[in-house]
C-alpha cells in the first residue's frame, strides 16, 4: 500500500458513494447510464469472486464488499426504485460491443489459464471501457449535472492515481503487471476529454455543457 493506491481507492469509493447519494437525494437517476452501472456490476462481480479463494487483507476484503454492495444497490435504485426517472432513450450505447471484445481478449492475453484468472482479466478489460455508455450519454444530451460531473471526475481520477501507484511499485518492489497497466492507461485516456471540460467549466462554477 502506498499513498497513490490509497488515494486512488478513496477516490473510487467517493465516486461510488457520490452516485448513490445523488440518486437518493434527488430521487432520480436522470443523466446516469444504467448500462455503465450494469457493466461496473459485472466488473466487480467477475473480479471479486476471489473473496472466496484468496485473502489479501481486511482492507481489501471490506472494500470489495462495499464496491459489490454499492453497485448492486445502484442497479436496484436505477432499475427498480427510481426506474421512471431512468433516461433510457439517451442510454443507447450497445454494450455487447464492449463485453464481447473484452471477453475474447481475456482468453488471448491472460496470465494463467484458469477460470478465476480469465474472469479477473475480463473484469480488467471491461472496466477499462465500462464508462463509454456514460460518456456517450453525456455527449448525446450535451450536458451533465454538477454532481454527476464530480462523480465522473472522482471515478476517472481513481485509475489515473493507480498509474502513479504502478510506477511507484515498479521502482520500490519490482511489481509489474502489464495487463492492468495497459488497461488502466486506456481507461484513463477515455476520461481525458472529460477532465478537460471538468477543469475548464465545472471547477469555475459552470455547468458542464457541450458546445
Amino acid at each position: 500500500m502506498n499513498i497513490f493506491r490509497l488515494c486512488g481507492d478513496l477516490s473510487h469509493l467517493l465516486a461510488i458513494l457520490l452516485l448513490l447519494f445523488k440518486i437518493w437525494k434527488t430521487r432520480s437517476c436522470a443523466g446516469i447510464s444504467g448500462k455503465t452501472q450494469l457493466l461496473f456490476t459485472i466488473v466487480y462481480t467477475a473480479r471479486y469472486l476471489d473473496l472466496f479463494t484468496s485473502f489479501v487483507s481486511v482492507y481489501n476484503s471490506v472494500m470489495k464488499i462495499v464496491f459489490l454492495t454499492a453497485s448492486y444497490g445502484t442497479l436496484y435504485l436505477m432499475f427498480y426504485k427510481f426506474k421512471p426517472t431512468y433516461d433510457h432513450n439517451h442510454d443507447s450505447f450497445r454494450i455487447l460491443y464492449l463485453i464481447v471484445p473484452a471477453l475474447v481478449l481475456s482468453f488471448i492475453i491472460v496470465h494463467v489459464y484458469t477460470v478465476m484468472e480469465i474472469l479477473w482479466t475480463f473484469s480488467i478489460y471491461l472496466e477499462a471501457v465500462a464508462i463509454m455508455p456514460q460518456l456517450f450519454m453525456v455527449s448525446r444530451t450535451g450536458e451533465a449535472e454538477t454532481i454527476t460531473s464530480h462523480y465522473l471526475f472522482a471515478l476517472g481520477s481513481y485509475r489515473a492515481l493507480y498509474i502513479l501507484n504502478w510506477i511507484y511499485r515498479y521502482y520500490t518492489e519490482d511489481f509489474l503487471d502489464w495487463i492492468t497497466i495497459m488497461a488502466g492507461i486506456v481507461q484513463t485516456i477515455l476520461y481525458c476529454d472529460f477532465f478537460y471540460l471538468y477543469i475548464t467549466k465545472v471547477l469555475k462554477g459552470k455547468r458542464l455543457s457541450l458546445p
Binding site: 476471489d50 479463494t53 484468496s54 489479501v56 487483507s57 470489495k64 494463467v112 493507480y162
Partner: peptide
C-alpha cells in the same frame, strides 16, 4: 497444483 495468481489491488 493449479497456479493461482494473487491480485492484491482492487
Amino acid at each position: 497444483g493449479e497456479a493461482i495468481m494473487k491480485h492484491d489491488e482492487l
